Computed example of a mutant assay.
Amino acid sequence: MAAEKHGIEPAQAARRPIVATIATVFKAGHVLLVRRANPPEAGTWGFPGGKVELGESLEQAALRELFEETGIDATARKVFTAVDAFDRDETGALRHHHVLVAVLCSWVAGEPVAGDDALEVRWVPLHALETGDLDLSRDVARLARLGADIAT
Rank of each mutant, 00 (worst) to 15 (best):
H98K: 13
R77L: 15
R77K: 15
L134K: 01
H127R: 11
R88A: 12
T75V: 15
K78R: 14
A102R: 02
T81Q: 07
V79I: 14
S106N: 14
R138D: 12
S106A: 15
H98Y: 14
T131I: 10
D135V: 13
L100Y: 02
D73V: 15
D89V: 02
L126V: 06
V83M: 07
G92F: 05
T75M: 15
D73G: 06
D87Y: 02
G115F: 02
V79E: 07
A76F: 11
V113E: 14
R122G: 05
V103I: 14
I72H: 08
G110T: 10
F86P: 01
D84M: 13
T91P: 01
R77V: 13
L104I: 03
W107S: 07
T91C: 05
G110N: 08
H96S: 10
R95V: 13
V113Y: 13
D87R: 02
V83T: 12
E130D: 06
V99G: 03
H96C: 04
T131Y: 00
A128M: 05
G115T: 02
V79T: 12
L100M: 12
D89W: 06
L134I: 07
L94K: 00
T131Q: 00
A85V: 11
H97P: 02
V99D: 10
L134Q: 01
A82C: 11
T75G: 15
T81V: 01
R77A: 13
R88L: 12
W123I: 06
D133S: 13
D135C: 10
V121L: 05
L136E: 03
D116Q: 14
A128P: 02
H127N: 09
R77G: 14
A82T: 09
W123A: 07
R138F: 04
A128S: 08
T81W: 03
T91V: 09
D135H: 12
L136V: 08
A114I: 10
H127Y: 08
K78T: 13
D116S: 15
D133H: 12
V124N: 00
W123C: 09
W107A: 11
D84W: 14
D133M: 10
D135N: 13
H98N: 06
W123Y: 06
D89F: 04
V83Y: 03
R122T: 00
A76K: 08
G110L: 10
D87M: 02
K78L: 15
P112T: 07
L100I: 11
S106M: 04
A74G: 06
G92C: 09
K78E: 15
H127C: 05
D89N: 11
T81E: 13
A93I: 00
E111C: 05
A102W: 03
L136H: 06
D133L: 10
C105M: 10
W107D: 12
L129V: 03
V101S: 07
P112G: 04
D89Q: 04
A102H: 08
V79C: 04
K78D: 14
W123Q: 09
H98T: 10
W107C: 04
G110D: 12
V121F: 01
R88G: 00
S137L: 11
A93G: 03
F80W: 05
L100C: 02
A85P: 00
